[in-house]
Design a protein around this nucleic acid. Structure first.
Lengths: 202, 202
DNA sequence: GCCATATCTGTCAGTCACTGACATGAATGG
DNA sequence: CCATTCATGTCAGTGACTGACAGATATGGC
């Protein structure tokens, strides 16, 4: 294992990620054309030249092809929030964290395909549901940090929960609106306008 | 069909509702004891003295036993909102509508069992997801009414969406908190405190 | 080059949620 | 008493997933 360099992701990790990306690309095309529910896992697998069983070795659930890996990005958002100055209003910190997250997506060139993915996502009930689970996960990761920033009155826990959920709702609305619009409006711009609708209080 | 009185729900509707209630009761006990995922539809059906096929004639999906019928209650909330005075701040109108909804639940005596249901709900991923779909449905029903109440600037649509989503997040947090607490705190009280956390702006 | 090991993959069988089609039996209405 | 309607059971089938097994492939040490 000391052949090239022992840094970061192993050789196999890279191959695995490449395979996941390939499957995602193929599956997304099928979903966009026929609809998520009309495409079976076996069809995706066949189009990718593998068995259905192997598909499930890369994606535990069919939905995960569209939703991605919430854990990984959730950690990024959490870290981005933690890196914000402690005296900044939490609402601004949350906005900044989400904007950084969106920037990461754009940097990865996922935006083009992301819009296709988002359109599939918002038009399919089971996908919306799975995506909202992701929000819950992010919520659990963010609430403790937000609570630590709030004034310590008797309702800190509840207020932190509400603020995070409201922020996640803004994120969701921003992405959904962006997916449904044809012009070049930026996600970041929609995010800022969404946060502005609730800003004066936090 | 003109036998008794031709009013409201037909004879068969009543029987159907009773059957649904019976299944719900039995299923909830099983879920509370073994966990939602560990109980199969056939087990519920057997405990209720019917075949699995018949269970699905009363509940299209296993999750619906816990989540209930969002459509029906969504209409109630929408109507409650519509009945509010037009010059009341939307945030207060939304709170009042949700409080009325909670009152309806309490009146139906669903609260005792509702707490059991809620605890099952918040502890099961697939149920949380299905419940969040309900929120989306309610959102689609409320957004037009809220938008009509807002000042007509260029961001009305987005703002209405955000406000409704934020209100639904408050509802969710209130219910979740209520389910996880052992004392006698009222849902209405938690609802008011949740709304208060975001009030100053809407 | 050769062998031991780990990894990837396909196949097969099985579970579970859900659905359509058909048959039966009970209740309803004239 | 008969015809219709409705609830239900049975059966077969689909589709997402999972575990177990076996063959292929690759990797690392020698």
């Amino acid at each position: 294992m000391s052949s090239t360099t022992n840094s970061g992701p192993s050789l196999r990790e890279i191959g695995r990620d490449a395979m996941r990306a390939r499957i995602t690309e193929i599956a997304l095309d099928l979903f966009a054309e026929h609809g998520f529910d009309q495409v079976t896992v076996d069809q995706i697998a066949a189009a990718a030249g593998m068995s259905g069983r192997t598909f499930h070795r890369y994606f535990p659930a069919k939905e995960d092809v569209v939703v991605g890996e919430p854990e990984q990005w959730g950690e990024f958002v959490r870290d981005a929030f933690a890196a914000r100055p402690a005296d900044e209003p939490v609402w601004d910190s949350l906005l900044a964290s989400f904007v950084a997250f969106v920037g990461l997506l754009e940097q990865n060139g996922r935006v083009q395909r992301g819009k296709v993915a988002m359109r599939v996502l918002v038009s399919t009930t089971s996908l919306r549901a799975r995506n909202l689970e992701k929000h819950q996960l992010w919520g659990r990761m963010l609430v403790p940090l937000v609570a630590a920033r709030l004034a310590d009155d008797d309702d800190t826990a509840l207020r932190a929960e509400i603020i995070v959920q409201a922020a996640l709702a803004c994120l969701d609305v921003a992405f959904t609106t962006w997916a449904n619009v044809d012009d070049d409006t930026t996600i970041s711009e929609l995010l800022e306008r969404s946060f502005a609708a609730l800003r004066p209080q936090v």
